[in-house]
């Protein structure tokens, strides 16, 4: 028993370190990616290729004054950024990076991630509500309606995968997809099911994770040109820093989940060099796609976002759920 707790403690520490390092260097990646897409070099001045930029930025953020504007709901205002960061770190505990590297595998790991994932929407709502700022307020309301709208197709597609695997254990889901490239859930061939809708399911899940993490083109919550900075308008110093890190940590979680559910986790495509790097390769490719998308498209509006969710994503994912259930019954 104590061993398990120690295990979890160490895992959380490692997770925090992983998340912090990722968040910091994803900002660097984002800036470099944006730079190259826009044909400029991105950060270059600090260190080689600007690699020292993230620590410098971190120090800058930490040394700044933490401003609490007058008239805010202080308790909620302070809790919100913590709440934005904390659930994402917890979620890392159950994510399996490979056969061995997992902090604490649970048979309901998937459920747990979703439960903690929904909490970030609450953090945004709290931040927006407590800030006493109309822009923040509008932004947080947007963020919540967006989170609710996108939770549904995301869960429906997840259920499809869970039905195929027959388990909510993330390890189990990956194991079911073992055996090479064509066995991954993204392809229609897996497990002998000829479910042609699986690639679309993957796409739906990917879009939903974009929306869940408030990434462009679904970054309505912090729509810069409309709502200034959205829910974190009033935050300064590390309050802002935590939101920022939380956002990037969420991206990593989204990429991890997509990899586990659809891209076969750490499974190597053609039996080449099996190992944890395949997992990392896959999530970083997905993260690159996140960045790539962000710097390509304009932002949607709230109604086209909801239209997309309710009129396109939910019907298709529901249909896929039905189809998969039918196919599972037949084969």
């Amino acid at each position: 028993m104590t061993l398990t707790f120690l295990n979890i403690f160490i895992a959380v520490v490692i997770a925090i370190a992983f998340v912090a390092a990722n968040a910091a260097y994803l900002v660097w990646c984002e800036r470099k990616g944006a730079g190259f897409i826009q044909r400029r070099p991105g950060p270059t001045e600090n260190g080689l290729w600007g690699l020292l930029q993230p620590p410098v930025d971190g120090i800058k953020l930490m040394t700044k004054q933490l401003m609490i504007p007058g008239g805010v709901d202080k308790i909620v205002f302070i809790i919100a950024p913590v709440l934005a960061m904390f659930p994402t770190i917890i979620s890392f505990v159950t994510i399996p990076f490979s056969d061995q590297i997992v902090a604490h595998n649970m048979n309901i790991g998937l459920l747990m991630i979703f439960v903690f994932g929904s909490m970030s929407a609450m953090a945004l709502l709290m931040a927006g509500w407590s800030s006493r700022n109309k822009f923040a307020m509008i932004s947080s309301v947007r963020a919540v309606s967006q989170a609710v709208a996108y939770e549904i197709p995301m869960l429906v597609t997840t259920i499809t995968v869970v039905m195929i695997a027959g388990s909510m254990d993330l390890m189990e889901i990956v194991h079911k997809q073992g055996g090479g490239f064509w066995h991954w859930n993204i392809w229609p061939l897996q497990n002998g099911l000829f479910n042609v809708l699986m690639p679309f399911s993957f796409l739906i899940f990917f879009i939903c994770s974009l929306a869940e993490t408030n990434r462009a083109p679904f970054d309505l919550g912090e729509a810069e040109s409309e709502l200034v900075a959205g829910y974190h308008t009033e935050y300064s110093s590390m309050g802002f820093g935590l939101f920022f890190m939380g956002e990037y940590a969420n991206i990593v979680i989204g990429a991890c989940l997509t990899t586990i559910l659809f891209l076969g986790g750490w499974d190597c495509p053609f039996g080449l060099f099996p190992g944890v790097w395949w997992f990392l390769l896959k999530i970083y490719f997905l993260i690159f796609t996140f960045i790539w998308i962000r710097w390509t498209f304009p932002r949607t509006t709230i109604y086209s976002l909801l239209n997309l969710s309710w009129k396109v994503l939910i019907p298709i994912s529901l249909f896929n759920l039905l189809l998969t259930a039918g196919l599972l019954k037949v084969f």
Partner: peptide
């Protein structure tokens, strides 16, 4: 564009 050289 990503793979084109910088112009700045």
């Amino acid at each position: 564009e990503f793979f084109k050289p910088n112009i700045t």
